[in-house]
Design a protein around this nucleic acid. Sequence first.
DNA 1: GTAGACCTGTGTGTAAGACACAGGTCAAGT
DNA 2: ACTTGACCTGTGTCTTACACACAGGTCTAC
Lengths: 143, 143
Amino acid sequence: MKVSELAKAYGTTPDTVRYYTRLKLLNPIKSENGYKYYPPTEVSRFKFILSARQLGFSVSDIKQIVDEAGHGKAACPLVRALIKERLAETEKQFQAMLTLRENMSRALEQWECKEDKAPTSTMVCHLIDSFEPVSTEEPSDEK
Amino acid sequence: MKVSELAKAYGTTPDTVRYYTRLKLLNPIKSENGYKYYPPTEVSRFKFILSARQLGFSVSDIKQIVDEAGHGKAACPLVRALIKERLAETEKQFQAMLTLRENMSRALEQWECKEDKAPTSTMVCHLIDSFEPVSTEEPSDEK
DNA sequence: GTAGACCTGTGTGTAAGACACAGGTCAAGT
DNA sequence: ACTTGACCTGTGTCTTACACACAGGTCTAC
């Protein structure tokens, strides 16, 4: 398969295929005209990469995994370790987004009924300046 | 205030202060020795920027808002419009993270009890290859 | 006078591609 | 045979919101 064919087959873009190829995650065969051709093994590797990305692995995680597997070793322990890390990160970000989302909707609500005010030298926008966020502090749980 | 003082006062880093200054979001006074000094108006502007960032506005959003206010106009309508956009984006990302998080924990669970397997030419890691994600598809709601 | 802690500007790095561009290649239609 | 248009190639730059590095200037305390 050629670059665009591969991309289309899995609903991504040629740029993504080229990106992974640049990083040597994919190793196509170069034909005489200079075009890259992806044999079946590379196609399934691409599928693998996309699955791993969907599971939250970073591209560099995937590189590690592929390298490990390239040595014939089972990458499973590494994979389990990595996903634990990524899950923890995701959980953190998730909580942050939860707070952010709540703050944003609270702000929107608060602001709907407030009038406009011209700025002053110390206040760019009274909406933002006077916004009261939800308490992020857990009363006394850590430290 | 000097760069590091300002940063410390609001729990950020000197690099952040310098970054906003580079973008002309902050306009310090240069003293003879070349150091930047932030007068009270710039200090409250910095406070404003940090609040806006916490509310999910991008730095370029903030630049727009500040510019608008710089012309003496009330930035409130712009602020309301922008936060609606950002909230919508956040909502999307939030849903995506929800799915991701679920997939990750499901994967972790599924994988705990599976044994390791050596890779083959078409399979880098059977854990990832055989993972079954939660259904992302809404049965037939759009399109 | 000098050590150490600050400051300056500028430049580079990050993640995961998206986009641009100059030029080569190929299949189809004339 | 020739041209058009759709593909391909490499390479380089852009994005976000800073973090970090570096060479050199400045300030404070000893």
